[in-house]
Amino acid sequence: MHMTNSKILEARFLAPDVKLFRIEAPRIARKQQPGQFVILRVHERGERIPLTIAGSDPKDGSITIIVQGVGKTTRHLNTLNAGDVILDVVGPLGKPSHIEKFGTCVVIGGGVGTAIAYPTAKALKEAGNHVIVIIGGRTRSLVILEKEIRAFADEVIITTDDGSYGQKGLVIDPLKQMIADARKIDMVLAIGPIPMMRAVAEVTRPYGIKTVVSLNPIMVDGTGMCGGCRVHVGGKSQFACVDGPEFDAHQVDFNGLSKRNALYREAELRALTEFEKHHCKLAEAK
């Protein structure tokens, strides 16, 4: 039935539970633009999950995704290695990031959100912006893509919650500092956990700084068919898969989004527990 299996060409951990995959997907590689995502299904009984594309190489027909193992499917994915196959990969989905010369852009990535922000940050630099990247992680080992980002960004600031690397504190601390220092900021892109994106939105709101976030609601098809990913933006219901995933942070109903994202928490936990049990047994058997 499936003619669109994607072979994994390269797989390596960037941090504990965070793995980079370069996979064969020639059609997607040709079309991908920063900010777009794929939906993939790992096996015949698997669910469909959306993942942002971190980059692509149209010449060798590969795309790169970075996966944080949080639930059953992402943990399963992270057990795969080069030479393995992902059953279904479809994309590129969603609207590309809006790239133009804004002036000074602050790109904020929290945890694996850094991987999602990375291609857009790079594109903003290529469009002639002064790009400041704030990379945040709970602890040093969770700070990812620092080298890749230093390669193009004008300034890089790192924060960790526990102070094990960079500044101790949250990603909004350096942002607040920049505002306090009266630095001119023309645009902020924030991608990470919902509380982080909401916090960034609240920091920039009083100053009217244009702020964009990339949302990750629950999706099934990713083409506008199911409406499961609807979020309230500016009082209107929008589908993140086709109208987004990027939206004006000051218009997003983060509260509604985090409630909807909790819909399957029990089922997700159950699936994960059973997977871990099974996986541990397999590991022991080996």
């Binding site: 009984r45 669910e47 099934v220 409406g227 819909l263 089922a267």
Partner: peptide
């Protein structure tokens, strides 16, 4: 939406959760 409910049940076989991974409201 009926589309989502039916897609989860039919295409994704959510009625066989957890044998299949896709969840649906219990």
């Amino acid at each position: 939406s009926a589309n989502e409910f039916l897609t989860r049940v039919n295409l994704m076989k959510a009625y066989k959760f957890p044998e299949y991974d896709e969840p649906i409201y219990d």
